[in-house]
Design a protein around this nucleic acid. Structure first.
Length: 124
DNA sequence: GCATTGACGAAGG
DNA sequence: CCCTTCGCCAATG
């Protein structure tokens, strides 16, 4: 678990690119295969629960960071594949989830509650 | 530099 | 119970 930084360093800055986003990436990478989580859960875990949007925004660069972040495992609180439109192809996210063993129906994760993974509880 | 938008979420009507 | 509004923070126009 990454230590929360009170400072929100803008990577647009000079040296350190370390930021809230990196924490998000780290958490997302810890999501076990076949499990999913929500933006809010991650945000809450990082202490920025009031800013779940930032998590989503962070995922915007998930495809650009070092090991790609399994952003497909992150959905909104409703279990909907809200970000599937950002995977290049409309079906990419579903495919990845299915490969993980997560059933997707109508752009929504089946048994979302069962597959839900809370970093604050099961992280370890 | 101000205004709008955004892969969300909770609360109010 | 469904729909609308507000809040949060950062990036982009």
């Amino acid at each position: 678990m990454p230590k929360k930084k009170t400072e929100l360093p803008r990577k647009t800055g000079k040296s350190k690119e370390y930021s809230f986003f990196d924490d998000v990436y780290d958490v997302v990478r810890q999501i076990p295969k076949g499990r999913v989580t929500s933006y809010g859960a991650i945000a809450s875990y990082l202490g920025t629960k009031l800013s779940a949007r930032m998590v989503g925004w962070a995922m915007n660069g998930a495809d650009k960071v070092s090991p790609k972040v399994p952003a497909q495992r992150v959905v909104n609180r409703n279990g909907m594949l809200s970000g599937k439109a950002h995977f290049g192809t409309p079906t990419r996210m579903e495919e990845l989830l299915k490969k993980d063993g997560v059933a997707v129906k109508n752009d929504t994760v089946v048994d979302f509650e069962k597959k839900f993974w809370d970093p604050a509880i099961e992280s370890v």
